[in-house]
Amino acid sequence: MTWTRKDLLDLQSLSGEEISTILDTARVFKDIGARPRKVMPALRGKTVVNLFVEPSTRTRISFELAALRLAADVINFTAEASSLRKGETLKDTARNLEALNADFIVIRHSAAGAPHFLSRVLKAHVINAGDGAHEHPTQGLLDVFTMLEEKKRIAGLRVTILGDILYSRVARSNIWALLKLGAHVTLCGPPTLVPRTFEELGCRVTHDLETAIKDADVINLLRIQHERQRKTMFPGLGEYTSLFGINRARLKAAPPDVLIMHPGPINRGVEVDSEVADGSQSVILKQVTNGLAVRMAILYLVNGGKLPQELIETYAGRTPDMVNPQQATATAE
């Protein structure tokens, strides 16, 4: 199907068909990555701004490389070095970037919904690179892409997501993509981090590791996000590891061809042992390679996406300053 969206904000609002379109496109881009000459001129002359209000290395580098591979210019903008520190609102910052004719804004922000907000006030294409505990759509897409590549199907696949579900935007994006493509999703971890409410989305929830992995085709391990948690969510890392950490002995409970995935960065010895993380079932580094292909696909697809009709009408004959003043309240912290 034809991709028509101007932005990539989340996976919840996409159809299974739209997700498949992204995966098909990424497949072709992955082949290009294996060529001696990897740059394609699809976005020549365009400017991509990486607006990372929350720190990130791998996602930012991946987006930067994806943009460069499509011959776009890239500007990196990080919170530490920015006027956001001086109290400028997110909207003003983004407007200033747009005034410099930025065509794409890739945003990571600690506030859920920040990309959605920007998409309503900017003509530029907005791509969510992680918003609070809400979604990390490109990570969800690259995870599903990797599963598809390794297991040749998503429909009917049994995927266990293990760890800090409650605070994880990666988990949410994975859940949406997997459910829309017909996979069976099991969530596992300490009860405080894996509440039963996730059953309402159509996931199976268990707090017993063996139950969670014994028939799994894929185990997607999530990083324990020390920085996002309140201290009281579980007694300590030692206890988490003893109950939910994946090591070789524990992995014997899972099928022998189970795929081990992790979005990184890995806390070695906490959620996963080095033996498993570097073992033959692990596709952790393939995920990184695939992330590049997926992000190229997203940039390519949204480039052709059009401003929604209501925004075209809003912009007609007016300056952007007059757009949606009532929505100007969300600010960066």
């Binding site: 991709w3 496109t25 497949r27 881009f29 290009i32 480039n303 996406g305 059009k306």
Partner: peptide, 12 residues
């Protein structure tokens, strides 16, 4: 590419 939806890409 600036004037249309992104065309479907096929393998080279």
């Amino acid at each position: 590419l600036d004037h249309r939806f992104a065309p479907k890409v096929h393998p080279t």
